[in-house]
Computed example of a mutant assay.
Amino acid sequence: MQPGPLHLDPVLVPKTWGGRRLGGVGRRLPPGVSIGESWDVADLAPEVTPVTDPCSRVVNGVAAGRCLADVISDDASALLGPVPPSNGRFPLLVKTLDAREHLSVQVHPTEAYAAVHPEAAAKTESWLVLAAEPGSVLYLGVKPGVERDDVRRAAGTSAIVELLRAVPAQPGSLHHLPAGLIHALGAGVLALEVQTPSDTTYRLYDWSEEYGRAARALHLAEGLEVAMAAWDVNVDGQRSVHRVASEDGVLLDTPAYRISRSRLHPGAVHRSAPGQARVVYVLSGQVTGPELSWPLRRGGVVLLPACWDGKLVATTQSTLVEILVGSDRADDASSPDGGEDRTAGLGPPGGGRSVRAR
Rank of each mutant, 00 (worst) to 15 (best):
V13F: 02
T16S: 08
W17S: 02
R20D: 08
R21I: 04
G23Y: 12
V33I: 15
S34W: 08
C55W: 01
S56G: 15
R57D: 10
V59T: 15
G65W: 12
R66K: 15
S73H: 14
D74V: 07
D75Q: 05
A76V: 07
A76Y: 01
P85S: 13
P85N: 11
N87F: 12
K95P: 04
E101Q: 14
S104F: 02
Q106I: 04
E111D: 15
A115C: 12
A131I: 07
E133P: 00
R148W: 15
R148A: 15
L163M: 08
A179Q: 06
A179Y: 05
L181R: 00
S198Y: 03
A217Q: 13
L218R: 04
L218V: 07
E225C: 06
M228I: 12
R243G: 07
G249I: 08
G249P: 07
V250R: 10
T254G: 06
S260W: 05
A273R: 15
R278L: 12
Q286G: 09
L292E: 05
W294F: 15
R297T: 11
R298Q: 12
G299W: 01
G300R: 02
L304H: 04
L324F: 03
S335I: 03
G339S: 05
D341N: 13
T343S: 15
G351T: 14
